[in-house]
Lab assay of single mutants.
Amino acid sequence: SEFSSRSGYGEYVQQTLQPGMRVRMLDDYEEISAGDEGEFRQSNNGIPPVQVFWQSTGRTYWVHWHMLEILGP
Rank of each mutant, 00 (worst) to 15 (best):
L68Q: 02
S5D: 14
S5T: 13
L17C: 02
E2M: 13
P49F: 02
D27E: 14
G72F: 14
P19F: 10
G20P: 09
G35E: 04
L68N: 01
V23D: 04
Q18Y: 08
P73Q: 11
D28A: 04
Y61I: 07
M25H: 00
N44S: 15
T16E: 08
V50W: 06
V23C: 01
D28P: 06
V63A: 03
R6S: 12
R6E: 14
M21A: 08
S43G: 03
L71A: 04
Y61N: 10
N44D: 14
W65K: 04
S7E: 07
L26A: 00
R24Y: 11
D28I: 05
G72V: 07
H66V: 06
M67H: 15
E31T: 08
V63S: 00
Q14E: 09
E39G: 00
V63F: 02
E37L: 11
S1N: 08
P48L: 07
L68Y: 03
M67A: 05
M67F: 03
W62Y: 08
V13W: 00
I47P: 02
G72T: 10
F3C: 13
T60Q: 09
Q14T: 12
E30L: 06
P19A: 07
R6I: 15
T60H: 08
E31Y: 00
P19N: 01
W54I: 13
E69W: 13
M67Q: 12
G38S: 09
Y61P: 01
G72H: 12
D36P: 02
Q14N: 04
S1L: 11
Y12C: 06
S4Q: 08
L26W: 06
E2V: 12
G20M: 10
Q55M: 14
E2D: 13
D27V: 14
G10I: 12
F53W: 13
S7P: 11
V63T: 02
Q14R: 14
P19M: 05
P48G: 06
S56A: 10
F3V: 09
F40H: 01
W65I: 03
F53G: 03
P49V: 00
R22H: 06
P73K: 11
Y61Q: 14
L17G: 02
Y9Q: 13
L26C: 04
G10A: 14
P48Y: 13
G8K: 11
E11D: 07
T60G: 05
I47E: 15
M25G: 01
D36S: 11
G35Q: 03
I32P: 02
L17P: 02
R59P: 00
S43D: 15
Y61L: 13
Y9N: 07
E37G: 06
W62F: 09
M21F: 15
G35K: 03
R6D: 15
Y12I: 11
N44V: 15
E39P: 14
Q15V: 01
W65S: 01
Y61S: 15
Q55D: 11
I32F: 00
I47K: 11
M21T: 08
V50A: 13
E11F: 10
E11H: 07
G20T: 03
T57K: 08
E30D: 10
W54M: 12
S4E: 09
P49G: 11
D27S: 13
G35C: 02
Q14C: 07
M21P: 08
